[in-house]
């Protein structure tokens, strides 16, 4: 019977180790980005649809050149929330330099700002939430993207059949940092209000949660469509 206990215990350990292998850390190489494919003054508008396909608002992304940086302005005008962000992005590395974000939802009026360290280091986050000042600090690695720049910045990734890469996705609004893997699943022809596109179907894996994005294969590699558990973005203009 001692063997039975030993067998059960080994089974538990083996099960956990197998799970480690199956669901654990990514083997994908660190994300490397090429030159920015967008232009100064570029703007894209997306229709936001809920799970039933009904429209719940729009999301807008606009790029502006500012010396050695890009300024990405985002605005989500949805039925449940109105939020916007301004992200300064290094023009060479496409790494985030700073972010300022405002969130207006029922019961929430918040402004969050953060300045990213030059490499790996401490990210201080300042926030004013419903009139109260708050602050936090998160240790971040060098290989990261800010959550609000992520979808647009991946346009600069060398997407191709079989491509995969990993990085840390930092969400300053709730001070989380998520190990993220990007994987090209294949190519698909996608039809959205803005037209029909040959696109790379890309799986975004955020610590076990999967989302999907479709990027135009031809330059400027626009984000054509994006889908998560609760909503879908489809390119309407831009």
């Amino acid at each position: 019977m001692k063997r039975a206990t030993l067998a059960l215990s080994l089974l538990l350990v083996a099960w956990s180790l197998a799970a480690c292998g199956a669901a654990g850390g990514s083997n994908a190489p660190a994300l490397t980005l090429g030159a920015a494919p967008w232009q100064d003054g570029e703007q894209a508008v997306y229709n936001v649809l809920d799970k039933n396909g009904s429209s719940v608002g729009t999301s807008t992304f606009a790029f502006k050149s500012d010396g050695g940086a890009w300024v990405l302005s985002t605005h989500d005008a949805l039925s449940s929330v109105d939020q916007g962000a301004t992200i300064h992005i290094d023009a060479q590395t496409l790494r985030p330099l700073s972010i300022e974000k405002t969130i207006k939802a029922q019961g929430t009026d918040a402004t969050v700002s953060a300045t990213y360290p030059a490499g790996a280091g401490r990210l201080p986050i300042m926030a004013v939430v419903n009139g109260k000042n708050k602050s936090a600090a998160v240790d971040v690695p060098a290989n990261l993207l800010d959550n609000d720049q992520l979808l647009m910045t991946l346009r600069a990734a060398p997407l191709a059949e079989g491509y995969q890469a990993s990085f840390v996705n930092v969400v300053v609004a709730n001070a989380t940092k998520i190990n993220t893997t990007v994987r090209v699943l294949g190519s698909e022809t996608v039809t959205v209000p803005a037209g029909t596109f040959d696109a790379w179907k890309v799986e975004l894996s955020f610590g076990g949660t999967q989302q999907t994005a479709w990027y135009e294969q031809a330059a400027p590699h626009r984000l054509v469509q994006y889908q998560n558990a609760g909503s879908k973005l489809v390119l309407a203009k831009g």
Partner: peptide, 20 residues
Amino acid sequence: NTIFAAGWTWGSVQLGGAPA
């Protein structure tokens, strides 16, 4: 595992308070 995989940090508590 689910909480940590979602990126939880102590900073989440500093910003979000007890709900985190």
